[in-house]
Write a protein that binds this DNA or RNA. Structure first.
Length: 187
DNA sequence: AACGTTCGCAACCGCGTTGTA
DNA sequence: TTACAACGCGGTTGCGAACGT
């Protein structure tokens, strides 16, 4: 038995949102707050599924969104965080106030990936394509510096977790003014 | 000007995770 | 403990805009 659909698709709009739909969603969330996405469309008078409403709000309508072009420093932060976390876009977005995971994901795929490749850097491993390095990033109990030639980051790893991987709970991340990183475990 | 191609981004889809009865 | 509903995330797609010929 498959998963039940998140909404009555037959009675849902799809595709681009209209200004009227946006306004209905904004008004509803202003009055009632976020949450209960499944019941929200009906309550707000929207012919959309809850998932779609949530995405529209988070990625486009939220008042605290920065929007506009990414700055050079944001660019650098994204590259460095990606070298730490991989494709954990929501985690990366959490370190960039006003930016959404979807926005960062798109920016990575359309701009940064290409930029890294043009510099001879593998965007997945952050290692030089010409001189590949074999040292695993999440090596246990070892200091790695720097992990990638283009990143002026110092990452201190002291992973004590039994799995040998660093989980969100294990990690605390600090970003100083020069965007250098230090990652350590919680004892 | 017209057409084809590429690019950028909003939105959708499927699945894993979490909460709860 | 289990089953189900709802949420949240990451990958992918679709479409309009921009660009090139």
């Amino acid at each position: 038995m498959g998963r039940s659909p998140c909404c009555e698709k037959a009675h849902s709009n799809k595709g681009a949102w209209t200004k009227e739909e946006d306004q209905l969603l904004i008004d509803y969330i202003r009055n009632h707050g976020e949450g209960s996405w499944r019941s929200l469309p009906k309550s707000a008078g929207l012919l959309r599924c809850g998932k779609s409403c949530r995405l529209r709000w988070i990625n486009y309508l939220r008042p605290d969104l920065k929007r506009g072009k990414f700055t050079d420093s944001e660019d650098q932060i994204i590259v460095k965080l990606h070298s730490l976390f991989g494709n954990k876009w929501s985690l990366i977005a959490g370190k960039l106030p006003g930016r959404t995971d979807n926005e960062i994901k798109n920016y990575w795929n359309t701009h940064i990936k290409r930029k890294l490749l043009s510099r001879g850097i593998d965007p997945n491993t952050h290692h030089s394509i010409i001189q590949p390095k074999t040292t695993p990033f999440h090596s246990r109990n070892r200091d790695v510096k720097p992990t990638c030639p283009h990143v002026n980051a110092y990452v201190k790893l002291n992973c004590a977790s039994a799995s040998g991987t660093t989980t969100d709970e294990d990690l605390r991340l600090s970003v100083d003014r020069d965007y250098k990183f230090e990652v350590w475990t919680v004892s």
